[in-house]
Simulated assay, not measured.
Amino acid sequence: MALAAGRLRHRVDIQARQQTQDPFTGEIIDNWVTIWPSVPAAVEPLSAREFIAAQAVQSEVSARITIRYRDGLDASMRIVHRGKIYNPAGWLSDKESGLEYLSAPVSQGVNQG
């Protein structure tokens, strides 16, 4: 089943944590760096039924974000959409080829950096 382009009507930034060292104090500082800006995505809040089912597994899940397949994504990254921060629980491949799109159940606001 093909992923319709019109479904990916939102734009999200995908960020990864980067550690740098302060040259004066030697302190390790965590920063979030945008590695993929303005990625076309479908940001879908969970319906009441899906939300109730998700609570059995993870009570923080609030939405599902779907993007076209790209290599290198993992659950340690975060997604920024309209100023809100979303944390993927993991990335799930499509059922058919595994290379068309990725979907992630996400929680909101936990990974502020």
Rank of each mutant, 00 (worst) to 15 (best):
I28Q: 02
E60K: 11
I67M: 01
L46P: 08
S103V: 11
W91V: 10
A54N: 04
I79D: 01
I28W: 00
P88M: 01
I14H: 04
E27R: 03
Q108G: 14
A53G: 14
S107T: 14
V57M: 13
T34R: 04
T34P: 14
H81W: 15
Q112C: 02
I52F: 09
G98V: 05
T34G: 11
A53H: 12
I35F: 00
R17T: 12
P37D: 05
L73D: 12
R68A: 13
R9Y: 08
R64T: 11
R11M: 01
Y101R: 12
A42D: 10
A4K: 09
V43G: 10
S62F: 00
T25N: 09
G72H: 08
G113C: 04
G6W: 01
I79C: 06
E96F: 03
R68C: 11
Q58N: 14
M77E: 08
R82I: 07
R82S: 12
P45A: 13
G90W: 00
G26N: 01
E44A: 14
E50Q: 15
N111M: 10
M77P: 13
N87T: 07
T34C: 11
S107M: 09
E96N: 10
I85A: 09
R68L: 14
D30M: 05
V33L: 03
V12Q: 03
N111E: 08
I14A: 12
S76F: 00
S107A: 11
K84P: 08
Q15S: 15
K95F: 06
A2Y: 15
P88I: 06
A4M: 07
I29L: 05
S93T: 12
V106K: 00
A2T: 15
T25E: 04
I67N: 00
V61W: 00
R7S: 04
T25I: 05
S107C: 07
D22P: 06
M77A: 11
L99F: 06
Q18K: 09
S97H: 03
T25P: 03
P40N: 03
A89G: 15
A5P: 02
G6R: 02
S62N: 12
A41M: 08
G83R: 09
G90P: 07
A16R: 11
R78F: 02
Q58I: 12
Q55S: 13
M77I: 07
Q112H: 05
N111I: 04
A54W: 00
K95Q: 08
Q15D: 15
M77Q: 14
D74F: 02
A75Y: 00
H10A: 08
D30R: 06
L102V: 08
P45T: 10
Q19P: 01
A16W: 00
A75E: 10
Q18N: 07
L8C: 06
E96C: 07
L99V: 04
I85V: 15
S47V: 11
V43D: 09
D71A: 13
D13K: 07
P37S: 04
P105A: 14
N111D: 09
K95T: 12
Q18H: 04
A89W: 01
Q18T: 09
S103G: 11
N31T: 11
